[in-house]
């Protein structure tokens, strides 16, 4: 039986109990949530957690323990992750441990571009951190939203531009020389299924040289606001 960090929370979530019962963990496997908060920074450009967390590029991670893979309504998961969910994958400590070490070893075509944490302690710390936000953490007033916005804000008028999907499809032909058209990550990040505001914000961060990648700076640099909106509309709709 696992050592439960907080038995009361465990009782609240029946599913959680089921998962935790799966394997034995030694005391040293249980990480330090404070160090985990540092590790979390690697996740925070795509995921939010804590009060007010919403889905961004990745789903919010409140109550992730016990959640079925691809289990949030309203988030556009990859086909691969939905399949994992249908196959019965539930986010337990052990499953998270495997997934965080090398996401593609568990879900081979996940859109998550994160390459994994090789360091076992980092994984344990991160899991301990995530654990603090499961079992009703949304109601914990002291837990502030943790996702730090990394890109400069985009003028709301630009965000409001409605893209032309057909034009976006034409422009997209230039993107898919490198990015996989179906959203797989084979060494270059997936760009399909993004919330449009995130896509537009990221592209403007390249255009304004706030993000470093030279190819993307060049590509975004010559796209107009309308063209960026059209690409966001097109790729946003690719499931």
């Amino acid at each position: 039986m696992k050592r439960l960090l907080d038995p009361i929370r465990a009782i609240i979530s029946g599913l959680f109990l089921v998962c935790m019962a799966s394997a034995a963990a030694k005391a040293e496997d249980i990480g330090d949530p404070e160090s985990g908060a540092q590790v979390w920074k690697k996740c925070a450009s795509c995921h939010m957690i804590g009060q007010g967390a919403r889905n961004k590029l990745g789903p919010h991670l409140n109550e992730v323990f016990g959640r079925r893979a691809a289990g949030l309504d309203g988030f556009n998961y990859s086909k691969a992750l939905r399949r994992a969910g249908a196959d019965g994958v539930v986010w337990s400590r052990d499953k998270l441990e495997v997934f965080l070490e090398n996401p593609k070893s568990l879900v081979s075509s996940t859109r998550m571009k994160f390459r994994g944490l090789r360091d076992k302690k980092e994984r344990a710390d991160l899991i301990a951190f995530l654990r603090e936000y499961s079992s009703s953490p949304r109601d914990i007033p002291e837990s502030a939203p943790t996702a730090a916005p990394t890109d400069p804000d985009v003028d709301p008028e630009i965000l409001a531009i409605e893209g032309d999907t057909a034009y976006g499809e034409y422009l997209s032909s230039e993107c898919v020389t490198c990015h996989q058209a179906d959203g797989d990550d084979k060494g270059i990040p997936s760009i399909t299924g993004w919330p449009q505001a995130d896509f537009v914000t990221a592209m403007h961060a390249y255009k304004n040289q706030a993000r470093p990648h030279p190819v993307m700076r060049m590509m975004a640099g010559r796209l107009s606001n309308e063209e960026i909106a059209s690409l966001a509309a097109f790729f946003g709709g690719v499931k």
Binding site: V176, T177, C178, H179, K186, G187, I188
Partner: peptide, 14 residues
């Protein structure tokens, strides 16, 4: 280098 591997996969499927 890793990016070039991704590009190869991208252009060949394109």
């Amino acid at each position: 280098y890793e990016e070039s591997v991704g590009w190869y996969a991208g252009i060949t499927s394109d």
